[in-house]
Design a protein around this nucleic acid. Sequence first.
DNA 1: CCAAAAGTGTTACCGTTACACCCATGC
DNA 2: GCATGGGTGTAACGGTAACACTTTTGG
Lengths: 236, 236
Amino acid sequence: MIKYQGQTRILVAVDCIIFGFDGEQYKLLLIQRGFAPEKKHWSLMGGFVQPNESLKYAADRILKQLTGLQNVYMEQLHTFGEPNRDPVERTIAVTYFALVDIQKYEKQLSKEYHAEWFSLNEMPELIFDHNQMVEMAKNRLRYKAALHPILFELLPEKFTFPQLQALYEGLYDTNFDKRNFNRKLLSTGLFVKQQEKDKENSKKGAFYYKLDQNKYIDDFQAFLKFIPNPEKFLTA
Amino acid sequence: MIKYQGQTRILVAVDCIIFGFDGEQYKLLLIQRGFAPEKKHWSLMGGFVQPNESLKYAADRILKQLTGLQNVYMEQLHTFGEPNRDPVERTIAVTYFALVDIQKYEKQLSKEYHAEWFSLNEMPELIFDHNQMVEMAKNRLRYKAALHPILFELLPEKFTFPQLQALYEGLYDTNFDKRNFNRKLLSTGLFVKQQEKDKENSKKGAFYYKLDQNKYIDDFQAFLKFIPNPEKFLTA
DNA sequence: CCAAAAGTGTTACCGTTACACCCATGC
DNA sequence: GCATGGGTGTAACGGTAACACTTTTGG
């Protein structure tokens, strides 16, 4: 096989920023790194890209190793390539961020990696430039969620409006008027009301809703202008 | 130096999608590839990441080689890593898109690469997955420009409102009411009216404006909700 | 004098916000 | 029966869109 002569080949890693939501707080799934350097220090889940896999495939593989989950919302975030970001050897890191239903995860836990969910405001220091990756992922999530209906990926199939509101209020660290919030959400036509109520979180109980899957796929733009005054919240 | 054992190192390239605007149409700067395979075929400008340069540095270097320009608006777009995207040898491509003032470029042309500006709708087939990269860059530009004031990077320091309007109408392939357009732009406070008029494009002449650089930097969010009904225009 | 492009105001409409009370239930 | 959280309607406001005529000047 002909090759490109005289060029330097570089290690390429994929790192995953995995978000969850426990009903009150946003969480991030971290692992204790299993090998030197920085062994035992907290880190994003990652791995090297293998010879015949695409980047997305590598990200899916890594997510599955850690959580057992497949078909999860995931998008490429950014590629980090400072020459000394990994002190051992130059490594380029392609990052993906994922949104998972934290409850599904708990059922499929792989003990192997000492994984733990951390609240975003109680996170340990991470190795290398992983803190920076997390910051970027948070910004991207706030940005994207203001314009598109993606946060549902963090909730179970059935969810209530109060849950939804907590989800959005948590992300933007603010409060919304529940009447306006419900009206706006309903006006998108993305939600199907169920008969059943969630009685765990209140005495009266709150109706469950499901996403209308067809509309959800078609109307990925449905939320543009969703957040009032988005400029207050978006960083880039 | 300790190294990561048993992992495959991969070629990493940076490719630049370089946009310009000639007053009527959006253009893309392409080169004729100088080496096999696909020699003489049209391609984005790119190059391999060198051992001690960051990705952004590589992108700046490549842009400078081709256009002579520095300090140009550029942002990382996406990283492409399908195993067979380059038939010679596996190569991961980190893409950047750039917005340049086409007039500045013309003064600093490097003949070496047989570079040419192509209108977006008259583009040749490109090598590898470069067409896909261009598509993604177009979408990103439309998305971003609907929310943030970045298109000015395509114009000279002084510009007129009719030019601005052509810039936006070209990107979204639509027409805006000029009264509403001007009012909305002026209301951002980003523009400083000059005494001088551009008499080249009309008999009456149109006043030049400049960006208020301080506000421009501060108010990168100024344009959110800028385009009416953005959901009609944004793809991702 | 006329063609071509620049510049300018007002009104109607719609979506967004602000706001407060009743309902259902478990304890 | 009372505390807790769920659910609902309306009115004022502000921003957006629709719309047409006058101005300037080069030829």
